[in-house]
Simulated assay, not measured.
Amino acid sequence: MADKLEQPARARLITPEGRERALPVTLRYASGDPLAVQITFPSEASLDGAEVTWIFARRLLEEGLRAPAGSGDVQIWPCGRARAVLEFHASRGVALVQFDRAVLRRFLARTYAVVEAGREGEGLGLDRGLARLLGGAGCDGSPSEKY
């Protein structure tokens, strides 16, 4: 089973004038960061001519495919039966990007094949690592090991 996946996709950037511009993007997921997904936009889509990657919660993507979700820099909502809109807020402005929902659903399903929902923390030793870092007790109440 792959621990990373990458899926090219087509998106439509909605311009301030309301026009759509086709845009190739790359959807990414890695088991090393199991709670997050990434969308990378090509340099021609950014104001400064640099490739841009947005990283946000996988759960936000899942929720946004069903109903409006998000209240921060990334917001997602269904748009009709076949599309979803992702809205990205940055210091220099806002970008609206439409995707076919089927593409995002397929990508999301592939991420769950890499790391199942609810199992994102397994193998990472987060509780134990945090206890060590903070010098506190382990999850079972016993003193944590020190480095």
Results as ranks from 00 to 15, higher is better:
A2D: 14
D3C: 01
K4E: 15
L5Y: 06
E6T: 12
E6Q: 14
P8Q: 07
P8S: 05
R12G: 08
L13W: 07
I14N: 05
I14R: 14
P16S: 09
P16A: 08
E17F: 02
G18L: 05
R19W: 08
R19L: 09
R21H: 04
R21I: 14
R21S: 12
A22H: 08
A22R: 11
P24K: 02
P24F: 02
V25E: 06
V25N: 07
V25W: 07
V25P: 10
T26L: 14
T26A: 11
L27V: 04
A30L: 07
A30F: 03
D33S: 12
D33W: 06
P34N: 09
A36Q: 11
A36R: 10
V37E: 08
Q38A: 14
Q38T: 05
I39T: 10
I39E: 10
I39H: 10
I39A: 11
T40V: 09
S43T: 02
E44F: 12
L47R: 10
L47H: 09
D48L: 06
G49Q: 03
A50R: 13
A50Y: 13
E51K: 08
E51P: 00
E51I: 01
T53W: 06
W54M: 02
F56V: 02
F56E: 03
F56T: 01
R59C: 00
R59H: 11
L61Q: 03
E62G: 04
E63D: 15
L65Y: 06
L65P: 07
R66A: 14
R66V: 04
A67L: 10
P68K: 03
A69M: 07
G70Y: 03
V74T: 11
V74I: 13
Q75N: 07
I76A: 06
W77N: 02
C79A: 15
R81M: 12
R81I: 03
A82R: 13
A82K: 12
A84P: 08
A84V: 14
E87H: 05
F88K: 01
A90F: 11
A90E: 14
G93Q: 05
V94H: 10
V94F: 04
A95G: 15
L96Y: 15
L96G: 13
Q98R: 14
D100Q: 14
A102E: 15
R106E: 15
R106Y: 08
R106K: 12
F107W: 02
L108A: 06
L108P: 07
A109P: 00
A109Y: 04
R110V: 00
Y112T: 00
V114W: 01
A117V: 04
G118R: 06
G118Y: 03
R119W: 04
E120L: 02
G121R: 12
L124F: 11
G125D: 12
G125R: 03
D127F: 05
D127G: 09
G129H: 10
A131M: 01
R132V: 03
L133Y: 13
L133R: 13
L134G: 10
L134M: 12
G135I: 01
